[in-house]
Every structure is written in structure tokens, then in C-alpha cells.
Design a binder for these strands. Structure first.
Lengths: 263, 263
DNA sequence: GGCTAAATCTCGTGC
DNA sequence: GCACGAGGTTTAGCC
């Protein structure tokens, strides 16, 4: 597969407009170096005064305006339903409109320093290792990592204020409500957990209910809040979880093979 | 100010490496069309199989790997402390390292379809209209929009679980705790407000305390929760707030002028 | 589509 | 530097 990137510079604005229209119509990838102003109106509203930026129009119509520094685009539009480009006086006006929510992005380009147009093919799989649901599933298999002799009753159990990550039954019959964080747990995680415990207490007044916050670490205020509310903070080592994930996946592979041989 | 965008194609990988190193050393803006693999390890870990992407290195060292579609980069590194580029066999290895948190991004480039190098100057101011603090300040000036004959006592008042957006005194002497959301309020906003009310009730047992949730709209479950907890949901029209903001700013300008004339 | 919660969230602010 | 909260958050998952 050969990928050709066309490069344009020093064209008239009118010629740039034609190139852009053609590229958008053919769902090409466009990268432009421009001097521009930007206005946005939709969920919020913003105005960006004139300056030099990169303007990217992706193959699905996503529009990104990037300043020369920083991670995030200063303005953008997700896959838009409609992109219009036109010449108005000595400026190119690019309008990217999205319905639902109704949002309009206007880019007023007064100079084009460079334009590249290409078409990229990207089917490469993206693997993410160890997100929160991984940790949750592993702990559901090994609840003893949280509390000895406990048994997993439910995962992502729906209660009135939201979803309980893990719902265990302890060795003395008590209910254990587990909130998991992949990164440092802050006060909001404790609040979240507390609201689940409260909701359950109201619903099951006769049960003894315990809360456990599981995370690799926690802020001081989160730890204090736990102590005050009688919630246990259980520290977990992420590398151990990674190890157990590998083990679980191997077991799963073996089981699948066994099922196949049996059938 | 003239901006020159250099464009390169069909170079040897070795030549690309030299161009990249030079551009990075001089804090230039780099945009590259590449066929690459990516590995990330740090706060999380991920692996991206081979495909065609845009690789952007910004003037502050931020690195973005964008697929040909979608809003967000598939991999990235914020301003990195260190970027290393080297040739290894038939591949360019780009390593972007950040300390604190320790994160490593490895981009393994096997083909370069195009490379542009430039330097952009962007000092344009970005104005954001109507964020949550704007709404809060306007409602602090016009508390009657929330509750007739009420008076603003405090803004961002610190209580144990966090900050109360607006703290009013009603016409019958009751305390009014206001939680503001710029967008549709969900159950978590109600929870937040409830926790403030509870904390205040404990602290000021003799006061009558009312809660008001202010937002342009709310989810059904948020409205239900409000009803159950005796919290009022006050719908606000954002365009009205915008109008009042303009008015407030004009008044402020006039006051400033008056002060100037007096002095 | 609405709702809920995670995210390599990012970004700003305050301490 | 940490902690906390807003965001045009975006994205994924479920109903």
C-alpha cells in the first residue's frame, strides 16, 4: 500500500478553497498551517483571536484546531455532519456544523502557510492493559484479596444511586460493598462508596453492611474520610493484578480448549 | 511575520532522523505522516499495532499520535522532558519520556510518507463565554432569580465535604444552599448538594436549610432524587444569563470609569 | 437516544 | 508538588 501525501504552498486562497473542497468531498485527511481566528457556539461559546495554528480535518470529518503547544486542541468539532468552505474577500471561511447537539465552528483563515492532503489506512488494533473493569473482574475471581473467606455475589450491581463495583458476602454473613479505583483514590471515591452503603442500608435494614475502598493509593483526606465513616481502605498492588490477569487468561484458554476437545 | 513550512518526502530514514533531531532541538513544530507501531507505559499501558497515522511533535515537546479519524489522539505524551530519535535497522525509534509521572511513549516508525517542519507564533487570546463560575457570579448578583427576596451571603463557601456554589438567606430567614450546573444536572449533582445540606444541618442544627439545584435541565433520576430529598430544581435559561452577564460587565465598566473620574 | 461512570482524562486553582 | 473540581470534557457500556 502506497500512501501519497500531496503538499501545497503559495497558492491563491481561491485555489486552496478548491483543494479543500475536493479533499473534504473525497474524505481525505487534511493538515493545514494557517493564520486564523476561530469562533465556536454550541454547548458553550468561545472566541479565539488571530494567531498561527494547525488545522486538521480528519477522514470522518472531525475538525481540530491546534495551537503550537499543548495536548488539547483549542477548538474542535467531532465528526461533523457538514463542512462548508468558501472564499469571502481575502479570507477563507470554514464552517463545521454538527447537529445534536447543535454546534457551529467557524474558522476564519487569513493566511495559509502550507497544506497537505493525504489518505491514511489504519486498521491496527489498540490494546489497553488493565483498566478498571479488568481489576474489577480479577478481584471478582479472587475476592479473598479484599476480604478473607468472602464470596462474590454480584459485579456492577445496580443500586439506587449508581453501580456497586463489587458486591461480596463476608464469612460472617455481612454484605461487603467494594469501590475500586485504578489510580489514587480521592475523597469523591469515598463519597461514591458511602452513597451506595447508605442506599443499601435503607433497602436492607437488617443486613450488616461493610464498605471497602480498593485502590493502589489514596489521598490523605480520602483515608481520613474512610476512618470517619468506618470504611476500610484496601491497598492493592497493580503489578500483582497484572500477574493474576495473565493467569486468568491462561486458565480461560485451557478451559476453552478442554470444551473444544470434549465436544 | 512570515511563516515557512518546510516539506520533505522520499528521504532516507537516516535523513528523516537528522531532520527530526534538528527540529526537536530547535523547538520546531513537526507533523509527520507515518506507518508506525506505538507502545505506551506509565499511568496505564497500551500497545497499538501497525497502521498509518499522523505524528505531531509540538513546540513544547508535546507528542500526539492521531489516527485518520476521531477527536482524540490514540497515543500521546504531554510536554515531555526528553525526546530521543534514532535509527534502528529499517526503523526510526522515537522515544518520548516524561518524569512525574514516569511515562514512556515509544513510536516505531517503519515508513515516512511525509514530513513538515515549521514554527508557529500564536499569541491570540482565547475567550470562553459562560462557564460555571460566570453563572455563579451572575446569580450571586441576582439571587432573586433563584428565590424571591433572598440575599447572597457567600460564594464558594467552604463546608466539610467541599464548596457550596452559592449560600443565600431567604426572606423567612432560612439558609438556601445552591448547587449550580452549566449543563444537564445528573444524580451526582444532587448527591453533592445533599452532602452539603447534611453537613450544614449537623453544624447549624437550629437553622432551617433549603437546597436548590440550578441548571438548564436535569436527568429524570436527578429530578426524582430532588423530589425525594425535598430539594427544589430551578431551571435557568442560559441565554438570559448571557444577557445579564453583558449587563453586569457594562455596569462594571461604568463604575470603573466613575472611580477614575472621581480620583 | 438517555444515563452512568472511567479516563494515560486535561487544565486550572489553591495551598 | 498535591488535591480538588470543571469541562464544548470524550468515550464506553448499558438500557
Amino acid at each position: 500500500m502506497v500512501v501519497m501525501i500531496e503538499n501545497f504552498a503559495s497558492l491563491d486562497l481561491k485555489e486552496y478553497v478548491d483543494k479543500l473542497r475536493d479533499a473534504i468531498a473525497h474524505k481525505k485527511l487534511i493538515v493545514m498551517y494557517v493564520r486564523c481566528r476561530v469562533e465556536y457556539e454550541g454547548r458553550s461559546a468561545s472566541k479565539l483571536e488571530v494567531g498561527d495554528r494547525i488545522l486538521i480535518i480528519k477522514q470522518d470529518g472531525a475538525v481540530l484546531v491546534h495551537r503550537p503547544t499543548g495536548y488539547s486542541p483549542v477548538n474542535w468539532q467531532p465528526e461533523t455532519t457538514y463542512i462548508d468552505v468558501k472564499l469571502e474577500g481575502t479570507k477563507i471561511l470554514l464552517k463545521a456544523i454538527r447537529r445534536s447537539p447543535r454546534e457551529i465552528l467557524n474558522v476564519e483563515i487569513e493566511k495559509v502557510y502550507g497544506l497537505t492532503i493525504g489518505e491514511l489506512h489504519d486498521t491496527g488494533t489498540f490494546y489497553e492493559l488493565l483498566d478498571e473493569s479488568d481489576i474489577r473482574d480479577i478481584l471478582a475471581h479472587y475476592p479473598e484479596l479484599i476480604e478473607e473467606n468472602s464470596v462474590t455475589i454480584d459485579v456492577e450491581k445496580r443500586v439506587e444511586p449508581g453501580f456497586i463495583d463489587l458486591y461480596l458476602r463476608g464469612k460472617n454473613g455481612e454484605i461487603i460493598v467494594v469501590e475500586i479505583k485504578r489510580v489514587k483514590a480521592s475523597i469523591s471515591a469515598v463519597k461514591q462508596l458511602k452513597s451506595y452503603i447508605d442506599a443499601l442500608s435503607k433497602h436492607l435494614p437488617k443486613e450488616r453492611i461493610k464498605g471497602v475502598l480498593v485502590a493502589p493509593e489514596a489521598t490523605n483526606s480520602a483515608i481520613e474520610a474512610c476512618e470517619k465513616l468506618g470504611i476500610r481502605f484496601k491497598k492493592i498492588a497493580l503489578d500483582k493484578i497484572v500477574e493474576l490477569k495473565r493467569k486468568l487468561m491462561e486458565e480461560k484458554r485451557e478451559r476453552t480448549l478442554l470444551d473444544y476437545l470434549k465436544s
